[in-house]
């Protein structure tokens, strides 16, 4: 029997999932920075952004938010970039928004579930990077053009592309793993 999914539950399991998500995000962001994706020019692609998105979809919005928020803080600490609260918050929202569909998904490999997840990946990237980029108006005094072209689009486009490609693959793999291990 499948356990009823509660959107805002934060018990022991969620604590561990959130911690693993945050650590994974930090490690993968750090590692892919080191490896450098070939051919991406000087555009910084961070495939690790799929971790908060997927953890949100698989374990709920709070887990997704913490995986993104804490994961980005840890990734920046590991890389020595400092602490940028508003971008951490944006990364948190990147995981929270896709997490809102968590109770609606029962079969992670169903086409409908994947389509819904893709939609919320785009929405999550728009909200997350939008909030982070808009905060630059408050912090740096940037105007709307600067915010859109220098902050929002260079962050939003790679995040969406990474999410659209990798989130379905993670969902299908997760469906196989849960089926094989008998987890719900």
């Amino acid at each position: 029997m499948q356990e009823k999914k509660s959107l805002w539950k934060f018990g022991t399991k969620q604590v561990v999932y959130a911690a693993i998500g945050a650590a994974l995000y930090a490690v993968l962001a750090y590692a892919t920075n080191m490896i450098q994706l070939p051919g991406a020019g000087n555009v910084s692609f961070r495939p690790a952004v799929v971790i908060p998105m997927f953890f949100g979809i698989a374990f709920g919005p709070i887990v997704g938010f913490i995986a993104g928020f804490v994961g980005n803080i840890l990734a920046d600490l590991l890389s020595g970039y400092g602490f940028w609260f508003w971008w951490d918050l944006g990364n948190g929202l990147l995981g929270l928004v896709p997490g809102l569909i968590y109770p609606l998904i029962q079969d992670y490999k169903a086409g409908k579930s994947i389509l819904l997840a893709e939609l919320f990946v785009v929405l999550g990237s728009a909200v997350g990077m939008g909030v982070a980029a808009l905060s630059e108006m408050w912090v740096s005094g940037a105007d709307m053009n600067t915010v859109i072209f220098a902050n929002f689009l260079p962050a939003f486009i790679p995040d969406v592309v990474n999410g659209l490609v990798l989130v379905p693959l993670l969902m299908i793999a997760y469906a196989a793993v849960t089926q094989r291990s008998g987890r719900s």
Binding site: T32, L37, A40, P47, L170, Y174
Partner: peptide, 18 residues
């Protein structure tokens, strides 16, 4: 190119979840 990163990300993520 992004798809090429999947064989790295997926096993690490699934092992961690398990």
């Amino acid at each position: 190119k992004i798809g090429r990163i999947a064989p790295l990300i997926i096993p690490v993520t699934m092992n961690a979840i398990l």
